[in-house]
Design a protein around this nucleic acid. Sequence first.
DNA 1: CGTTCTCTTGACTCATCTCAAATCTGGTGG
DNA 2: CCACCAGATTTGAGATGAGTCAAGAGAACG
Lengths: 249, 249
Amino acid sequence: MKHAPLIAQNHMRCADCPIRHRAVCAYCEPPELAVLDAIKSYKTFQAGETIAWAGEEMEVLGSVVSGVATLSRTLADGRRQMVGLLLPSDFVGRPGRKSAPYDVVAASEVMICQFVKQDFEKLVSKTPPLERRLLDMTLDDLDAAREWMLLLGRKTAREKIASLLVIIARRDAILNSQDVVDGLRFALPLTREAMADYLGLTIETVSRQMSALKKTGVIVLEDARNVGIPDYAALIDEAGDDSDGGFIS
Amino acid sequence: MKHAPLIAQNHMRCADCPIRHRAVCAYCEPPELAVLDAIKSYKTFQAGETIAWAGEEMEVLGSVVSGVATLSRTLADGRRQMVGLLLPSDFVGRPGRKSAPYDVVAASEVMICQFVKQDFEKLVSKTPPLERRLLDMTLDDLDAAREWMLLLGRKTAREKIASLLVIIARRDAILNSQDVVDGLRFALPLTREAMADYLGLTIETVSRQMSALKKTGVIVLEDARNVGIPDYAALIDEAGDDSDGGFIS
DNA sequence: CGTTCTCTTGACTCATCTCAAATCTGGTGG
DNA sequence: CCACCAGATTTGAGATGAGTCAAGAGAACG
Protein backbone atom coordinates (compact mmCIF):
# COMPACT_ATOMS: atom_id res chain seq x y z
CA MET A 1 0.00 0.00 0.00
CA LYS A 2 2.80 2.45 -0.69
CA HIS A 3 1.92 5.45 -2.78
CA ALA A 4 4.68 7.55 -4.17
CA PRO A 5 5.09 9.83 -1.16
CA LEU A 6 4.57 13.51 -1.72
CA ILE A 7 7.52 15.38 -0.37
CA ALA A 8 6.46 17.98 2.15
CA GLN A 9 7.50 21.06 0.29
CA ASN A 10 7.61 23.63 2.99
CA HIS A 11 7.66 26.39 0.49
CA MET A 12 5.02 25.25 -1.97
CA ARG A 13 3.04 28.31 -2.90
CA CYS A 14 -0.72 28.30 -2.34
CA ALA A 15 -1.22 29.23 -5.96
CA ASP A 16 0.38 25.91 -6.94
CA CYS A 17 -1.49 23.86 -4.36
CA PRO A 18 -3.43 20.88 -5.69
CA ILE A 19 -6.37 21.56 -3.39
CA ARG A 20 -6.36 25.30 -3.94
CA HIS A 21 -9.87 25.33 -5.42
CA ARG A 22 -11.66 22.96 -3.07
CA ALA A 23 -10.14 23.60 0.35
CA VAL A 24 -10.98 26.18 2.97
CA CYS A 25 -8.96 28.72 0.98
CA ALA A 26 -11.03 28.23 -2.17
CA TYR A 27 -12.78 31.59 -2.01
CA CYS A 28 -9.63 33.56 -1.24
CA GLU A 29 -8.00 36.00 -3.63
CA PRO A 30 -4.25 36.39 -4.07
CA PRO A 31 -3.81 38.96 -1.28
CA GLU A 32 -5.54 36.70 1.20
CA LEU A 33 -3.62 33.72 -0.06
CA ALA A 34 -0.43 35.57 0.64
CA VAL A 35 -1.41 35.84 4.29
CA LEU A 36 -2.19 32.13 4.46
CA ASP A 37 1.06 31.38 2.70
CA ALA A 38 2.92 33.19 5.44
CA ILE A 39 1.42 31.28 8.36
CA LYS A 40 0.99 27.81 6.96
CA SER A 41 3.28 24.81 7.26
CA TYR A 42 3.17 21.24 6.03
CA LYS A 43 3.26 18.12 8.10
CA THR A 44 3.19 14.49 7.07
CA PHE A 45 1.78 11.55 9.01
CA GLN A 46 2.45 7.88 8.38
CA ALA A 47 -0.37 5.43 7.75
CA GLY A 48 -1.79 4.36 11.10
CA GLU A 49 -0.42 7.38 12.92
CA THR A 50 -2.85 9.31 15.11
CA ILE A 51 -3.19 12.92 14.07
CA ALA A 52 -5.31 13.94 17.05
CA TRP A 53 -6.77 12.15 20.05
CA ALA A 54 -10.37 12.47 21.12
CA GLY A 55 -10.73 15.14 23.74
CA GLU A 56 -7.12 16.24 23.52
CA GLU A 57 -6.55 19.92 23.01
CA MET A 58 -5.55 20.63 19.43
CA GLU A 59 -3.11 23.39 18.77
CA VAL A 60 -3.37 23.19 14.98
CA LEU A 61 -6.01 23.13 12.29
CA GLY A 62 -5.60 22.53 8.61
CA SER A 63 -6.47 20.89 5.35
CA VAL A 64 -5.73 17.42 4.06
CA VAL A 65 -3.50 17.91 1.02
CA SER A 66 -3.03 14.26 0.14
CA GLY A 67 -3.94 10.89 1.59
CA VAL A 68 -6.93 9.69 3.57
CA ALA A 69 -7.66 10.19 7.25
CA THR A 70 -10.52 8.96 9.39
CA LEU A 71 -12.56 10.51 12.18
CA SER A 72 -13.87 8.09 14.76
CA ARG A 73 -15.49 7.84 18.14
CA THR A 74 -15.02 5.01 20.59
CA LEU A 75 -17.26 3.75 23.37
CA ALA A 76 -15.80 2.85 26.75
CA ASP A 77 -15.92 -0.86 25.95
CA GLY A 78 -14.09 -0.45 22.66
CA ARG A 79 -16.90 -0.33 20.13
CA ARG A 80 -15.79 2.10 17.47
CA GLN A 81 -17.71 4.09 14.89
CA MET A 82 -16.12 6.08 12.14
CA VAL A 83 -17.92 9.39 11.78
CA GLY A 84 -16.06 10.91 8.89
CA LEU A 85 -13.62 10.24 6.12
CA LEU A 86 -11.18 13.05 5.38
CA LEU A 87 -10.04 13.27 1.78
CA PRO A 88 -7.80 15.81 0.09
CA SER A 89 -9.20 19.33 0.59
CA ASP A 90 -11.18 18.34 3.68
CA PHE A 91 -10.69 20.38 6.80
CA VAL A 92 -9.14 18.93 9.95
CA GLY A 93 -10.00 20.23 13.38
CA ARG A 94 -12.82 21.93 15.17
CA PRO A 95 -12.72 25.72 14.90
CA GLY A 96 -14.26 27.50 17.84
CA ARG A 97 -13.68 24.73 20.34
CA LYS A 98 -10.61 23.51 22.17
CA SER A 99 -10.98 19.87 21.31
CA ALA A 100 -13.19 17.52 19.40
CA PRO A 101 -14.53 14.26 20.79
CA TYR A 102 -13.08 12.06 18.08
CA ASP A 103 -9.81 10.52 17.06
CA VAL A 104 -8.25 11.58 13.78
CA VAL A 105 -6.11 8.81 12.29
CA ALA A 106 -4.14 8.64 9.06
CA ALA A 107 -5.46 5.76 6.94
CA SER A 108 -2.66 6.22 4.43
CA GLU A 109 0.28 8.56 4.39
CA VAL A 110 -1.32 11.96 4.91
CA MET A 111 0.02 15.43 4.26
CA ILE A 112 -1.63 18.31 6.02
CA CYS A 113 -1.38 22.03 5.39
CA GLN A 114 -1.61 23.29 8.92
CA PHE A 115 -2.08 26.52 10.81
CA VAL A 116 -1.68 27.42 14.44
CA LYS A 117 -5.22 27.28 15.72
CA GLN A 118 -5.32 30.68 17.37
CA ASP A 119 -3.76 32.44 14.40
CA PHE A 120 -6.13 30.75 11.99
CA GLU A 121 -9.21 31.57 14.02
CA LYS A 122 -8.18 35.18 14.28
CA LEU A 123 -7.64 35.24 10.54
CA VAL A 124 -11.00 33.65 9.84
CA SER A 125 -12.85 36.32 11.75
CA LYS A 126 -11.07 38.99 9.71
CA THR A 127 -11.40 37.27 6.33
CA PRO A 128 -14.97 36.88 5.07
CA PRO A 129 -14.11 34.56 2.16
CA LEU A 130 -12.43 32.15 4.57
CA GLU A 131 -15.36 32.20 6.90
CA ARG A 132 -17.84 31.76 4.09
CA ARG A 133 -15.94 28.81 2.69
CA LEU A 134 -15.74 27.22 6.12
CA LEU A 135 -19.50 27.58 6.46
CA ASP A 136 -20.16 26.02 3.07
CA MET A 137 -17.82 23.13 3.80
CA THR A 138 -19.41 22.56 7.19
CA LEU A 139 -22.88 22.53 5.67
CA ASP A 140 -21.72 19.95 3.15
CA ASP A 141 -20.21 17.86 5.93
CA LEU A 142 -23.49 18.05 7.78
CA ASP A 143 -25.41 16.86 4.71
CA ALA A 144 -22.96 13.99 4.33
CA ALA A 145 -23.26 13.07 8.01
CA ARG A 146 -27.03 12.97 7.71
CA GLU A 147 -26.80 10.82 4.62
CA TRP A 148 -24.63 8.52 6.68
CA MET A 149 -27.19 8.44 9.48
CA LEU A 150 -29.71 7.05 7.02
CA LEU A 151 -27.25 4.37 6.02
CA LEU A 152 -26.38 3.45 9.61
CA GLY A 153 -29.93 3.41 10.86
CA ARG A 154 -31.82 1.81 8.03
CA LYS A 155 -29.74 0.05 5.41
CA THR A 156 -28.94 -3.66 5.32
CA ALA A 157 -25.36 -4.89 5.39
CA ARG A 158 -25.40 -5.47 1.64
CA GLU A 159 -26.76 -2.00 0.95
CA LYS A 160 -24.19 -0.47 3.25
CA ILE A 161 -21.33 -2.10 1.41
CA ALA A 162 -22.74 -1.14 -1.97
CA SER A 163 -23.22 2.45 -0.79
CA LEU A 164 -19.63 2.68 0.37
CA LEU A 165 -18.36 1.32 -2.93
CA VAL A 166 -20.47 3.89 -4.78
CA ILE A 167 -18.94 6.68 -2.74
CA ILE A 168 -15.41 5.50 -3.31
CA ALA A 169 -16.04 4.94 -7.01
CA ARG A 170 -17.39 8.49 -7.32
CA ARG A 171 -14.50 9.99 -5.50
CA ASP A 172 -12.08 8.01 -7.58
CA ALA A 173 -13.71 9.20 -10.76
CA ILE A 174 -13.59 12.78 -9.55
CA LEU A 175 -9.90 12.49 -8.72
CA ASN A 176 -9.30 11.37 -12.28
CA SER A 177 -11.72 14.07 -13.44
CA GLN A 178 -13.93 11.74 -15.39
CA ASP A 179 -17.39 10.25 -14.97
CA VAL A 180 -18.00 6.89 -13.36
CA VAL A 181 -18.08 4.39 -16.21
CA ASP A 182 -18.79 0.68 -16.36
CA GLY A 183 -15.60 -1.26 -15.98
CA LEU A 184 -14.07 1.20 -13.53
CA ARG A 185 -11.36 -0.31 -11.38
CA PHE A 186 -10.06 1.17 -8.15
CA ALA A 187 -8.14 0.39 -4.98
CA LEU A 188 -9.96 0.50 -1.67
CA PRO A 189 -8.26 3.02 0.60
CA LEU A 190 -9.66 1.25 3.65
CA THR A 191 -8.98 -2.05 5.37
CA ARG A 192 -11.91 -4.37 6.09
CA GLU A 193 -11.74 -3.19 9.66
CA ALA A 194 -12.01 0.46 8.66
CA MET A 195 -14.90 -0.39 6.37
CA ALA A 196 -16.62 -2.16 9.25
CA ASP A 197 -16.08 0.80 11.54
CA TYR A 198 -17.46 3.11 8.92
CA LEU A 199 -20.53 1.02 8.21
CA GLY A 200 -21.42 -0.05 11.73
CA LEU A 201 -20.73 -3.72 10.95
CA THR A 202 -18.20 -6.37 11.95
CA ILE A 203 -15.32 -7.26 9.65
CA GLU A 204 -16.79 -10.72 9.14
CA THR A 205 -20.02 -9.26 7.83
CA VAL A 206 -18.11 -6.88 5.57
CA SER A 207 -16.12 -9.76 4.19
CA ARG A 208 -19.18 -11.93 3.65
CA GLN A 209 -21.07 -9.21 1.85
CA MET A 210 -18.11 -8.42 -0.36
CA SER A 211 -18.01 -12.09 -1.28
CA ALA A 212 -21.76 -12.10 -1.87
CA LEU A 213 -21.57 -9.08 -4.18
CA LYS A 214 -18.74 -10.76 -6.00
CA LYS A 215 -20.69 -13.98 -6.40
CA THR A 216 -23.64 -12.06 -7.82
CA GLY A 217 -21.34 -10.38 -10.31
CA VAL A 218 -22.05 -6.88 -9.04
CA ILE A 219 -18.37 -6.37 -8.33
CA VAL A 220 -15.16 -8.04 -9.43
CA LEU A 221 -12.44 -8.66 -6.84
CA GLU A 222 -8.94 -8.99 -8.18
CA ASP A 223 -7.74 -9.19 -4.63
CA ALA A 224 -9.14 -7.97 -1.35
CA ARG A 225 -8.28 -4.38 -2.07
CA ASN A 226 -8.88 -4.01 -5.80
CA VAL A 227 -12.42 -3.69 -6.97
CA GLY A 228 -13.92 -3.58 -10.44
CA ILE A 229 -17.42 -2.34 -11.23
CA PRO A 230 -18.69 -4.02 -14.41
CA ASP A 231 -22.14 -2.40 -14.20
CA TYR A 232 -22.36 0.82 -12.25
CA ALA A 233 -26.16 1.01 -12.45
CA ALA A 234 -26.40 -2.43 -10.85
CA LEU A 235 -24.20 -1.27 -7.98
CA ILE A 236 -26.30 1.86 -7.47
CA ASP A 237 -29.31 -0.38 -7.38
CA GLU A 238 -27.81 -2.49 -4.62
CA ALA A 239 -27.15 0.64 -2.58
CA GLY A 240 -30.89 1.04 -2.11
CA ASP A 241 -30.99 4.82 -2.48
CA ASP A 242 -34.09 6.30 -3.90
CA SER A 243 -33.72 7.19 -7.51
CA ASP A 244 -32.92 10.88 -7.10
CA GLY A 245 -29.53 9.85 -5.84
CA GLY A 246 -28.78 11.97 -2.85
CA PHE A 247 -25.13 11.54 -2.11
CA ILE A 248 -23.27 14.74 -2.06
CA SER A 249 -19.92 14.57 -3.71
CA MET B 1 -50.93 16.93 23.51
CA LYS B 2 -52.16 20.52 23.36
CA HIS B 3 -49.81 23.13 24.66
CA ALA B 4 -51.07 26.60 25.24
CA PRO B 5 -50.56 27.86 21.69
CA LEU B 6 -48.31 30.82 21.26
CA ILE B 7 -50.10 33.42 19.27
CA ALA B 8 -48.13 34.37 16.18
CA GLN B 9 -47.41 37.93 17.06
CA ASN B 10 -46.45 39.38 13.77
CA HIS B 11 -44.99 42.39 15.42
CA MET B 12 -43.08 40.82 18.25
CA ARG B 13 -39.80 42.67 18.47
CA CYS B 14 -36.58 40.70 18.20
CA ALA B 15 -35.44 42.20 21.48
CA ASP B 16 -38.36 40.49 23.20
CA CYS B 17 -37.91 37.18 21.39
CA PRO B 18 -37.56 34.11 23.60
CA ILE B 19 -34.81 32.65 21.41
CA ARG B 20 -32.98 35.93 20.97
CA HIS B 21 -29.80 34.67 22.61
CA ARG B 22 -29.55 31.20 21.12
CA ALA B 23 -30.80 31.54 17.55
CA VAL B 24 -29.00 32.60 14.41
CA CYS B 25 -29.41 36.22 15.49
CA ALA B 26 -27.63 35.65 18.79
CA TYR B 27 -24.48 37.59 17.87
CA CYS B 28 -26.36 40.53 16.35
CA GLU B 29 -26.42 43.98 17.89
CA PRO B 30 -29.49 46.24 17.96
CA PRO B 31 -28.84 47.85 14.54
CA GLU B 32 -28.57 44.46 12.87
CA LEU B 33 -31.59 43.21 14.76
CA ALA B 34 -33.55 46.11 13.36
CA VAL B 35 -32.81 44.90 9.85
CA LEU B 36 -33.91 41.37 10.74
CA ASP B 37 -37.00 42.78 12.41
CA ALA B 38 -37.94 44.43 9.16
CA ILE B 39 -37.77 41.35 6.97
CA LYS B 40 -38.96 38.60 9.27
CA SER B 41 -42.42 37.14 9.61
CA TYR B 42 -43.96 34.45 11.76
CA LYS B 43 -45.69 31.34 10.61
CA THR B 44 -47.30 28.54 12.58
CA PHE B 45 -47.60 24.88 11.61
CA GLN B 46 -49.92 22.33 13.16
CA ALA B 47 -48.60 19.10 14.64
CA GLY B 48 -48.11 16.63 11.81
CA GLU B 49 -47.97 19.31 9.14
CA THR B 50 -45.08 19.16 6.70
CA ILE B 51 -42.98 22.29 6.74
CA ALA B 52 -40.84 21.30 3.74
CA TRP B 53 -40.65 18.30 1.45
CA ALA B 54 -37.41 16.54 0.59
CA GLY B 55 -35.99 17.92 -2.62
CA GLU B 56 -38.61 20.61 -2.97
CA GLU B 57 -37.28 24.10 -3.48
CA MET B 58 -37.57 26.13 -0.33
CA GLU B 59 -38.34 29.79 -0.59
CA VAL B 60 -37.94 30.51 3.11
CA LEU B 61 -35.46 29.91 5.90
CA GLY B 62 -35.86 30.61 9.56
CA SER B 63 -35.66 29.70 13.21
CA VAL B 64 -37.88 27.52 15.33
CA VAL B 65 -39.38 29.82 17.96
CA SER B 66 -41.49 27.24 19.74
CA GLY B 67 -42.43 23.60 19.33
CA VAL B 68 -40.53 20.63 17.96
CA ALA B 69 -39.91 19.70 14.34
CA THR B 70 -38.14 16.73 12.82
CA LEU B 71 -35.81 16.28 9.87
CA SER B 72 -36.02 12.93 8.14
CA ARG B 73 -34.95 11.04 5.07
CA THR B 74 -36.90 8.25 3.44
CA LEU B 75 -35.73 5.38 1.26
CA ALA B 76 -37.69 4.42 -1.85
CA ASP B 77 -39.33 1.48 -0.06
CA GLY B 78 -40.49 3.59 2.86
CA ARG B 79 -37.79 3.01 5.43
CA ARG B 80 -37.39 6.28 7.28
CA GLN B 81 -34.59 7.70 9.36
CA MET B 82 -34.82 10.86 11.36
CA VAL B 83 -31.64 12.87 10.93
CA GLY B 84 -32.32 15.82 13.17
CA LEU B 85 -34.59 17.18 15.84
CA LEU B 86 -35.31 20.89 15.63
CA LEU B 87 -35.95 22.59 18.93
CA PRO B 88 -36.57 26.25 19.72
CA SER B 89 -33.68 28.38 18.39
CA ASP B 90 -32.64 25.76 15.82
CA PHE B 91 -32.31 26.86 12.24
CA VAL B 92 -34.60 25.54 9.50
CA GLY B 93 -33.47 25.28 5.93
CA ARG B 94 -30.30 24.87 3.95
CA PRO B 95 -28.55 28.15 3.18
CA GLY B 96 -26.56 28.09 -0.02
CA ARG B 97 -28.57 25.41 -1.73
CA LYS B 98 -31.97 25.38 -3.38
CA SER B 99 -33.35 22.39 -1.54
CA ALA B 100 -32.40 19.88 1.08
CA PRO B 101 -32.88 16.13 0.72
CA TYR B 102 -35.01 15.75 3.83
CA ASP B 103 -38.55 16.30 4.98
CA VAL B 104 -39.17 18.80 7.74
CA VAL B 105 -42.27 17.93 9.76
CA ALA B 106 -43.84 19.61 12.76
CA ALA B 107 -43.93 17.14 15.68
CA SER B 108 -45.97 19.55 17.77
CA GLU B 109 -47.41 22.93 16.95
CA VAL B 110 -44.42 24.86 15.66
CA MET B 111 -43.87 28.56 15.26
CA ILE B 112 -41.18 29.70 12.91
CA CYS B 113 -39.56 33.09 12.51
CA GLN B 114 -39.00 33.07 8.79
CA PHE B 115 -37.16 35.03 6.14
CA VAL B 116 -37.34 35.00 2.38
CA LYS B 117 -34.40 32.84 1.44
CA GLN B 118 -32.79 35.16 -1.05
CA ASP B 119 -33.09 38.19 1.21
CA PHE B 120 -31.68 36.28 4.14
CA GLU B 121 -28.72 34.95 2.21
CA LYS B 122 -27.92 38.38 0.92
CA LEU B 123 -28.09 39.71 4.45
CA VAL B 124 -25.88 36.94 5.81
CA SER B 125 -23.11 37.79 3.38
CA LYS B 126 -23.24 41.40 4.49
CA THR B 127 -23.54 40.72 8.20
CA PRO B 128 -20.54 39.01 9.79
CA PRO B 129 -22.19 38.29 13.14
CA LEU B 130 -24.98 36.43 11.35
CA GLU B 131 -22.55 34.42 9.33
CA ARG B 132 -20.40 33.63 12.31
CA ARG B 133 -23.38 32.47 14.31
CA LEU B 134 -24.56 30.31 11.44
CA LEU B 135 -21.13 28.71 11.28
CA ASP B 136 -21.08 28.01 15.00
CA MET B 137 -24.56 26.52 14.89
CA THR B 138 -23.68 24.36 11.91
CA LEU B 139 -20.55 23.09 13.63
CA ASP B 140 -22.64 22.17 16.67
CA ASP B 141 -25.16 20.40 14.44
CA LEU B 142 -22.32 18.48 12.85
CA ASP B 143 -21.01 17.40 16.24
CA ALA B 144 -24.49 16.28 17.20
CA ALA B 145 -24.93 14.38 13.93
CA ARG B 146 -21.66 12.56 14.51
CA GLU B 147 -22.66 11.71 18.03
CA TRP B 148 -25.82 10.27 16.54
CA MET B 149 -23.84 8.22 14.04
CA LEU B 150 -22.13 6.51 16.95
CA LEU B 151 -25.49 5.72 18.47
CA LEU B 152 -26.95 4.42 15.22
CA GLY B 153 -23.96 2.34 14.27
CA ARG B 154 -22.89 0.83 17.53
CA LYS B 155 -25.36 1.09 20.37
CA THR B 156 -27.84 -1.60 21.41
CA ALA B 157 -31.56 -0.89 21.43
CA ARG B 158 -31.54 -0.40 25.19
CA GLU B 159 -28.62 2.01 25.00
CA LYS B 160 -30.31 3.92 22.20
CA ILE B 161 -33.47 4.43 24.23
CA ALA B 162 -31.51 5.46 27.32
CA SER B 163 -29.44 7.90 25.24
CA LEU B 164 -32.55 9.51 23.81
CA LEU B 165 -34.06 9.88 27.28
CA VAL B 166 -30.85 11.50 28.51
CA ILE B 167 -30.97 14.01 25.68
CA ILE B 168 -34.58 14.89 26.31
CA ALA B 169 -34.02 15.10 30.06
CA ARG B 170 -31.10 17.50 29.50
CA ARG B 171 -33.02 19.69 27.14
CA ASP B 172 -35.95 19.75 29.51
CA ALA B 173 -33.72 20.80 32.37
CA ILE B 174 -32.18 23.54 30.23
CA LEU B 175 -35.60 24.86 29.25
CA ASN B 176 -36.40 25.18 32.93
CA SER B 177 -32.90 26.56 33.48
CA GLN B 178 -31.94 24.05 36.13
CA ASP B 179 -29.71 21.03 36.37
CA VAL B 180 -30.89 17.52 35.78
CA VAL B 181 -31.82 16.15 39.20
CA ASP B 182 -32.98 12.74 40.38
CA GLY B 183 -36.74 12.58 40.32
CA LEU B 184 -37.04 14.70 37.18
CA ARG B 185 -40.31 14.18 35.35
CA PHE B 186 -40.96 15.18 31.76
CA ALA B 187 -43.26 14.61 28.80
CA LEU B 188 -41.85 12.93 25.72
CA PRO B 189 -42.30 15.24 22.74
CA LEU B 190 -42.17 12.25 20.37
CA THR B 191 -44.49 9.37 19.57
CA ARG B 192 -43.13 5.84 19.71
CA GLU B 193 -42.95 5.93 15.95
CA ALA B 194 -40.87 9.12 15.94
CA MET B 195 -38.59 7.63 18.57
CA ALA B 196 -38.16 4.54 16.41
CA ASP B 197 -37.36 6.65 13.36
CA TYR B 198 -34.85 8.63 15.33
CA LEU B 199 -33.12 5.59 16.82
CA GLY B 200 -33.12 3.33 13.78
CA LEU B 201 -35.46 0.84 15.47
CA THR B 202 -39.03 -0.40 15.06
CA ILE B 203 -41.81 0.83 17.31
CA GLU B 204 -42.15 -2.64 18.81
CA THR B 205 -38.53 -2.63 19.91
CA VAL B 206 -38.89 0.89 21.31
CA SER B 207 -41.91 -0.20 23.27
CA ARG B 208 -40.25 -3.33 24.57
CA GLN B 209 -37.14 -1.49 25.69
CA MET B 210 -39.17 1.21 27.39
CA SER B 211 -40.96 -1.57 29.27
CA ALA B 212 -37.66 -3.22 30.09
CA LEU B 213 -36.17 0.01 31.48
CA LYS B 214 -39.32 0.46 33.50
CA LYS B 215 -39.15 -3.06 34.88
CA THR B 216 -35.53 -2.51 35.93
CA GLY B 217 -36.55 0.66 37.71
CA VAL B 218 -34.33 2.90 35.59
CA ILE B 219 -37.35 4.91 34.53
CA VAL B 220 -40.88 5.38 35.82
CA LEU B 221 -43.73 5.49 33.31
CA GLU B 222 -46.85 7.27 34.45
CA ASP B 223 -48.26 6.73 31.02
CA ALA B 224 -46.69 6.17 27.63
CA ARG B 225 -45.65 9.80 27.29
CA ASN B 226 -44.68 10.80 30.81
CA VAL B 227 -41.34 9.66 32.10
CA GLY B 228 -39.73 9.96 35.50
CA ILE B 229 -36.02 9.52 36.18
CA PRO B 230 -35.49 8.36 39.75
CA ASP B 231 -31.72 7.98 39.34
CA TYR B 232 -30.11 10.03 36.62
CA ALA B 233 -26.70 8.40 37.03
CA ALA B 234 -28.27 4.99 36.43
CA LEU B 235 -29.84 6.24 33.22
CA ILE B 236 -26.53 7.70 32.03
CA ASP B 237 -25.00 4.35 32.75
CA GLU B 238 -27.54 2.58 30.56
CA ALA B 239 -26.74 4.96 27.71
CA GLY B 240 -23.33 3.37 27.43
CA ASP B 241 -21.38 6.57 26.78
CA ASP B 242 -17.84 6.70 27.96
CA SER B 243 -17.48 8.56 31.19
CA ASP B 244 -16.45 11.95 29.80
CA GLY B 245 -20.00 12.35 28.56
CA GLY B 246 -19.83 13.78 25.12
CA PHE B 247 -23.27 14.95 24.25
CA ILE B 248 -23.35 18.52 23.17
CA SER B 249 -26.23 20.48 24.63
C1' DC C 1 -70.11 3.77 23.43
C1' DG C 2 -68.21 2.71 19.15
C1' DT C 3 -64.20 4.23 16.29
C1' DT C 4 -59.63 5.09 15.71
C1' DC C 5 -55.07 5.71 16.91
C1' DT C 6 -51.25 4.66 19.89
C1' DC C 7 -49.00 1.56 22.50
C1' DT C 8 -47.90 -3.04 24.44
C1' DT C 9 -47.11 -7.88 24.33
C1' DG C 10 -46.40 -12.54 22.37
C1' DA C 11 -44.54 -15.96 19.14
C1' DC C 12 -41.59 -16.76 15.64
C1' DT C 13 -38.03 -15.51 12.00
C1' DC C 14 -33.89 -13.88 10.33
C1' DA C 15 -29.88 -10.82 9.73
C1' DT C 16 -25.98 -9.95 11.88
C1' DC C 17 -22.76 -11.01 15.57
C1' DT C 18 -19.61 -14.16 18.04
C1' DC C 19 -16.35 -17.54 18.29
C1' DA C 20 -13.23 -20.41 15.83
C1' DA C 21 -10.44 -22.00 12.25
C1' DA C 22 -8.54 -21.91 7.65
C1' DT C 23 -6.39 -19.23 3.86
C1' DC C 24 -3.83 -15.71 1.83
C1' DT C 25 -0.32 -12.04 1.68
C1' DG C 26 3.83 -9.63 2.09
C1' DG C 27 7.94 -9.37 4.47
C1' DT C 28 12.06 -11.55 6.90
C1' DG C 29 15.96 -14.13 7.59
C1' DG C 30 18.54 -18.02 6.37
C1' DC D 1 15.07 -19.04 -3.52
C1' DC D 2 12.49 -20.96 0.25
C1' DA D 3 10.42 -21.74 4.96
C1' DC D 4 8.20 -19.17 8.30
C1' DC D 5 5.70 -15.51 10.67
C1' DA D 6 2.34 -11.78 11.49
C1' DG D 7 -1.37 -9.46 9.94
C1' DA D 8 -5.36 -9.28 6.89
C1' DT D 9 -9.09 -11.66 4.99
C1' DT D 10 -12.31 -15.35 4.27
C1' DT D 11 -15.32 -18.99 5.65
C1' DG D 12 -18.03 -21.96 8.80
C1' DA D 13 -21.23 -23.01 12.66
C1' DG D 14 -24.01 -21.59 16.11
C1' DA D 15 -26.02 -17.82 19.20
C1' DT D 16 -28.81 -13.84 19.66
C1' DG D 17 -30.78 -9.19 19.29
C1' DA D 18 -33.94 -6.95 16.75
C1' DG D 19 -37.45 -7.39 13.12
C1' DT D 20 -42.02 -9.24 11.47
C1' DC D 21 -46.57 -10.58 11.95
C1' DA D 22 -50.49 -10.75 14.77
C1' DA D 23 -53.46 -9.77 18.49
C1' DG D 24 -54.95 -7.30 22.49
C1' DA D 25 -55.15 -3.12 25.77
C1' DG D 26 -55.54 1.88 26.54
C1' DA D 27 -56.68 6.44 25.57
C1' DA D 28 -58.72 10.17 22.88
C1' DC D 29 -62.57 11.72 20.26
C1' DG D 30 -66.92 12.44 18.42
